[in-house]
Design a protein around this nucleic acid. Structure first.
Lengths: 231, 231
DNA sequence: TAGTGGTCTAGACCACTAT
DNA sequence: TAGTGGTCTAGACCACTAT
C-alpha cells in the first residue's frame, strides 16, 4: 500500500503536478485522499524524504525539493550508468565485448559467496557518454541463481530480467579505489598509458541476503566523478 | 523515546549482551521491556537495520548482524581518518606540513560559497596508518566563520573546536575521482611516479546550510579503499 | 490561534518460519 | 500450530510555524 502511494506521489512530482519547491497537501489531507491512515501515508513520504525528493518542515509543511534531485540522482546513479549520463545531458551507449561461462576466480567466488566449482557468467562491456568511452565494466553472475542467461537477456538489462523472474533487490556494497589499468583497458578507455582510473567493486544482494552480481568497473579518472551526500 | 531505545540497543550489541549473529527478543517482548508500543520499538530497530547492525528475517526474528559492523564503521569513517585506521587495527598518525592564511583560489571560494577577497585558512597534513603514509589532506576553512584559528586548534581537531563554539554540523557532499598526483604529493605518500591516487573533494555544511570546510584528499590508491553500503 | 509535522498508543490481520 | 516480522488503523498529544 505505502509503496503504491510512494510511486504515485513520485509520479505526480515528476509530472510537475506538485511543482518544485511548492508545499504538498498536509499529511492528514493526503491520507484522506489515499484512504489510508496518516501513519501509512507517512511511510510513503518518508521514503521520498530519504530520497531527497521531499523536504519536511515541522510546523510548516512538506515541500517538493528544489534541486536536490541532482544529488540523489547521482547517488542512485552509481548503480545505473544510463541515469548518470542522462542527468548530464549525454546519451549512454554500450559496446559489448564478450560474454562467457566459466569457473569463477577466487575473488569472484568469494564476493558471490559460492564455491569455485560453481559456474559463473561474465560479461565485459565498454560504456560511453555520447561517443566518449567512460567506463569498462565487468559483470559476473552465478549460474546457480540466474540460470543460463543469454547475451541478449544480460545485455538488455540484468536487473529487469531478474525482476521479471521474481527476484527482489536488497543492499549493495561498493568499494572504491584508484589504480592505473592494464594496457587493454587503457586502450578501450582511450587512456594514455599512465593515466589513472577510479576502480569500483560492487556486490549486489537480493532481499534474502544472497549476492546476485559482482561488478568491477574502471572509470576514466578524468571523465568521471562520483558524488555522495552524507546525513 | 525511540532514539533512546536505539542507543540502548546499540550499546547492548556493542557490549555483546546480544551476541553477534544471535536472535534478538521479539519485537513484542522488547516493546514490553521498554514499556512502549510495538510501533515505537520498530522505529528504534529500523534505524539499526538501516545501519546494518540488525537484520530482519520475516517469520523468524531479528538478528544481530554477523560482521556488517565493518561496513557502517567504514561509512562513518570516511569523515574520520582516525576511526578507519582504528577499525583496521592501525594507529592513526599525522604529520603537520603547514598552515597559512591567504586569499582563496577559485575552487576554494566557490566550494565555501565566499568571494575571493574573503580570507581562508589552509592546512596541509600527511596522514599515516602506523608508519605508512596513507593520505595527503588539504583542509580549507573561511576566516569569516571560524575566526583566526591557530595551528594547535586546527590540528587538534577542527570539529571539536567548532562544536565548542556552538556550531552544529549538517550534511557533507563528497566527490570521488582518480588521478596521478603531482611530484610533491607522490613523495609525501611514498608513491612511485605514475601510481594512482583516489582523490576526494568534500564540502561540509553547518545545519543552517553554510559551508564551513572544504577538504581535498589524495589517498594512496594501493593502500586505501572506501566502502559504501546502499539501501 | 489554526494548522503542520513528530511521535506515540493499543490494538489488528497477514504471510511466513520453525517445529 | 505458535511465534515472528510487515503492515495498517484511528485515534492522541506535543512543539512548532504562520498569521
Amino acid at each position: 500500500m505505502f509503496l503504491r502511494i510512494r510511486d504515485d506521489l513520485a509520479k505526480r512530482i515528476d509530472k510537475q503536478q506538485f511543482e518544485s519547491g511548492s508545499r504538498l497537501p498536509s499529511e492528514r489531507l493526503l491520507a484522506q485522499e489515499y484512504k489510508v491512515s496518516r501513519m501509512t501515508l507517512r511511510q510513503a513520504t518518508t521514503l521520498l524524504v530519504n530520497q531527497g525528493k521531499l523536504l519536511r518542515k515541522p510546523g510548516s509543511g512538506t515541500y517538493v525539493s528544489a534541486q536536490n534531485n541532482e544529488v540523489s540522482e547521482n547517488l542512485k546513479g552509481v548503480t545505473s550508468f544510463t541515469q548518470i549520463m542522462r542527468s548530464q545531458g549525454k546519451t549512454a551507449k554500450t559496446k559489448f565485448i564478450f560474454l562467457k561461462r566459466h569457473q569463477p576466480s577466487l575473488i569472484e567466488a568469494s564476493n558471490l559467496e559460492i564455491s569455485r566449482d560453481q559456474d559463473v557468467i561474465t560479461m565485459e562491456r565498454v560504456r560511453y557518454g555520447d561517443d566518449e568511452p567512460i567506463a569498462y565494466e565487468i559483470t559476473t553472475v552465478p549460474v546457480a541463481l540466474v540460470g543460463n542467461i543469454t547475451r541478449n537477456e544480460m545485455a538488455g538489462g540484468l536487473y529487469q530480467y531478474l525482476e521479471e523472474k521474481g527476484f527482489r533487490f536488497g543492499k549493495a556494497i561498493q568499494e572504491f579505489s584508484a589504480l592505473v589499468p592494464n594496457v587493454n583497458i587503457c586502450k578501450r578507455l582511450d587512456l594514455t598509458n599512465g593515466q589513472a582510473a577510479l576502480f569500483l567493486r560492487q556486490t549486489s544482494y537480493l532481499t534474502d541476503g544472497k549476492p546476485f552480481e559482482f561488478v568491477q568497473t574502471y572509470y576514466a579518472g578524468d571523465r568521471y566523478r562520483v558524488y555522495l551526500q552524507r546525513e
